[in-house]
Computed example of a mutant assay.
Amino acid sequence: MILTDVWGLYKADKQIQGYSPQTLKAYYVQFNLLVNSFGNISIQELSTNSLKVYLGKAAEKLKPASLGHRIQFIKSLFRWAQDENLING
């Protein structure tokens, strides 16, 4: 499933769970940064190593708290995708 389709399902699930609009907006910013970096590829194509490189480059420019937000979003997205059987565990 391509990332933009994943986002639609992820967002809907988090809305049902009661995530605040502010949290979803912040997550959408992080999602767009991910898509801008990798393209609208299948979520299965994102490897742990490619995400480490992505986060390593971000760490050079971001404050620790901002990097933490990016990491938190990615963990949340991939944990959710794994639970939904969109990726292998």
Rank of each mutant, 00 (worst) to 15 (best):
M1N: 07
I2W: 02
L3S: 01
T4A: 15
D5K: 10
D5T: 06
V6N: 07
V6T: 05
W7T: 00
W7K: 01
K14S: 13
Q15S: 10
I16M: 09
I16Q: 11
G18K: 09
Y19I: 02
S20N: 02
Q22Y: 10
Q22M: 11
T23H: 06
K25W: 05
A26N: 14
Y27W: 11
Y27Q: 04
Y27V: 00
Y28Q: 13
V29I: 14
Q30D: 05
F31I: 08
F31K: 02
N32Q: 15
L33N: 09
S37D: 09
F38C: 07
N40E: 06
I41L: 12
I41A: 14
S42C: 10
Q44D: 13
Q44Y: 09
E45V: 02
S47Y: 10
T48R: 15
S50Q: 14
S50T: 09
K52A: 14
K52E: 13
K52C: 11
V53G: 04
V53N: 11
K57W: 01
K57G: 05
K57M: 04
K57N: 07
K57T: 00
A58P: 04
A59E: 11
K61A: 08
L62D: 02
K63T: 00
K63I: 00
K63W: 00
K63L: 01
P64Y: 12
P64Q: 11
P64N: 06
P64F: 12
A65V: 04
G68K: 03
G68T: 04
G68I: 04
H69V: 00
R70Y: 02
I71P: 09
Q72P: 02
I74G: 10
I74M: 11
K75F: 08
K75N: 13
K75R: 15
S76P: 01
L77F: 03
L77S: 04
L77P: 02
R79W: 01
A81M: 03
D83I: 03
D83G: 13
E84D: 13
I87A: 10
N88C: 10
